[in-house]
Design a protein around this nucleic acid. Sequence first.
DNA 1: ATGGTAGAGCATCTA
Length: 262
Amino acid sequence: MRLVTWNVNSLNARLGRVEEWIAECQPDVACLQETKLADAAFPSMAFAALGYESAHHGEGRWNGVAILSRVGLHDVVPGFADGESDDPEARLLTATCGGVRVMSAYVPNGRSLEHEHYQYKLRWLERLRRHLDVVADPTAPTAVCGDFNIAPTDLDVWDPKAVHGATHVSPPEREALGRLLAWGLADVFRDRFPDTGRLFSWWDYRAGNFHKGLGMRIDLVLASGPLARRVSWALIDRNARKGKLPSDHAPLVVQLEDEDAA
DNA sequence: ATGGTAGAGCATCTA
């Protein structure tokens, strides 16, 4: 199974590019974030034409997450299943695809450490941790995929000094991510490249940062033990940013061996 | 010099 996660930064603006990239990459399951669409506007027919079932959880102007699958799409859960009030923002979608419990997550940005949105981000991560208890099992194949808006370590940042005191690198965010991992998940990309820097998945549009190599690795696939053992390779496809008006994120591609081969 | 660009949507907010 080939599993990908990609923050597309508006599916309206990016549909042609996303269709083209999916046709080339041939993922079995694709988790998308920042579709910026209402459910009624989600282009399910375009993905059906490529051979994918799809599920979308959106609100319109901002946020919005989707899962595409050509290996089945069942038991879809929009948002949190923790029994608390509905998340006011559409940032989480869960489905079972090809025997894997898959989540497409768009973690809040946080804006600044002093901003209310940063507290929302920390609470959101704790809710995601509790959501896992309800919808998934760390001893079964589980993949939490998405834009975490957290650089797990300083190796995931172009210059730790430049971002010190900002979101994405603060200890509380990294500790919250650590609690997700402690549930029984592995950062499958980092586990394959434990010491390699400059392997980024996001670059600020401004100041030509992509071309200067100034980015962060904030797009992650977190896999439970039974799934992490099946990873044969993983890559961040910077080629998806070729040409005009790319997303500010590159897709992460994870290749998994069949269950019986692992 | 707190800059710069992109998306949504039409004034700014978000990232």
